[in-house]
Design a protein around this nucleic acid. Sequence first.
DNA 1: TGTCATTTTAAACGGGTGTTTGATATTTGG
DNA 2: CCAAATATCAAACACCCGTTTAAAATGACA
Lengths: 208, 208
Amino acid sequence: MDTKTKILNAAELLFADKGFTGTSLREITSIAEVNLAAVNYHFGSKKELIKALMKRYLDELTPSLVKSLTEVLESEEEQDLEDVFSAFVEPLLSLNELRENGTSNFLQLLGHSYTDSQGFLRWFITTNYPGIIDNFTAAVHKVYPELSSEDIFWRLHFTMGTAVFTMSSTEALIDIASNDFGLKLDVADVIKRIIPYVAAGVGAPISK
Amino acid sequence: MDTKTKILNAAELLFADKGFTGTSLREITSIAEVNLAAVNYHFGSKKELIKALMKRYLDELTPSLVKSLTEVLESEEEQDLEDVFSAFVEPLLSLNELRENGTSNFLQLLGHSYTDSQGFLRWFITTNYPGIIDNFTAAVHKVYPELSSEDIFWRLHFTMGTAVFTMSSTEALIDIASNDFGLKLDVADVIKRIIPYVAAGVGAPISK
DNA sequence: TGTCATTTTAAACGGGTGTTTGATATTTGG
DNA sequence: CCAAATATCAAACACCCGTTTAAAATGACA
């Protein structure tokens, strides 16, 4: 495995777990078993490393997400909101085949992108999201025409919040679920529980 | 105003905005206009300062939240999930009377508690939440008896995720809403949009 | 095989971190 | 009013940070 990949893998593990500001390059290069200077040599800076890390997932996710949402959009069959969200779920879960814990790692990284560093979210959305947002908005509009694009915008972000936040604290939650309810859970279980929730949330009646 | 309060106020501002790891004691003491050593003198350590900051809100919020949920529980009138969540909203919004931007500051701090530092969430929940969780579970169970306490547990956390995450990125979202939709929004607006969403989410039909 | 570009390395750089110290003010209570 | 407790202060401590440097190792190719 080449140095760049070793760095990306170690960075993914640590960033997802401890956030961007909470993880040092020395921890990353130590776990990756490469020299400290390698990060700046191969990526330029810590910030660029973070972007490269997100790009590795987005290059995989964006096309399959757009494709999946387009299918919903162009389908002749009648569809509901659970279908729209299942269109999200499959591409997200397929990240697990790409890399171990791919799905939860990506969602945790996404969460840190929002909360760790100011402005990062803006860059992230404006450079990567417009296509996905438009597709999602169109898909929801198709199955729920009364909902304004403004409402859809907000409910999309509530939904992202639910997913991202839940994944960010998955470990703790699975811990608690195990202690208090004697349940053994994994990411797929959690996602299955989320879908009805967010589908109902997005499909909520419009309050005046 | 005494030194302890000056420190707490400055810390609240900075921690909410930039997270715990992203804020230094020097920034805090500089804005608070107190000596750097004052934090360790009055609080012992940075970690203890964070706990004291959360405690300042929780001591205010927990009793009024328990009271509000108990009222829902003991009410003779018929109630729905929006009533249950309104029971949350009023105590939360009343934090705005306690301190400027109290509501969003607290929710942002809560968000950082989840994502910034490992283990902090566990401490937070186990030492502060059991009463609130029990009350919420009972209140939801009252208006939606078919839902298992397991389902309620998950949907409560999805709901917290929605609220906390949304508040953590409120600035960015309000920015985007302003640019893309020409909307001027504040925290109360956002909360009003969240309620139907989470009420519908918690009230979603049970999937087998 | 020898040259040249690429990659890796150890070491240092300047600066920021939380915390501690010991001296100096300030406030409090007999 | 003065001694004792409390609070503030500048300075230093030891450590960790991201980044840069320049030399050493490795690779590709003629």
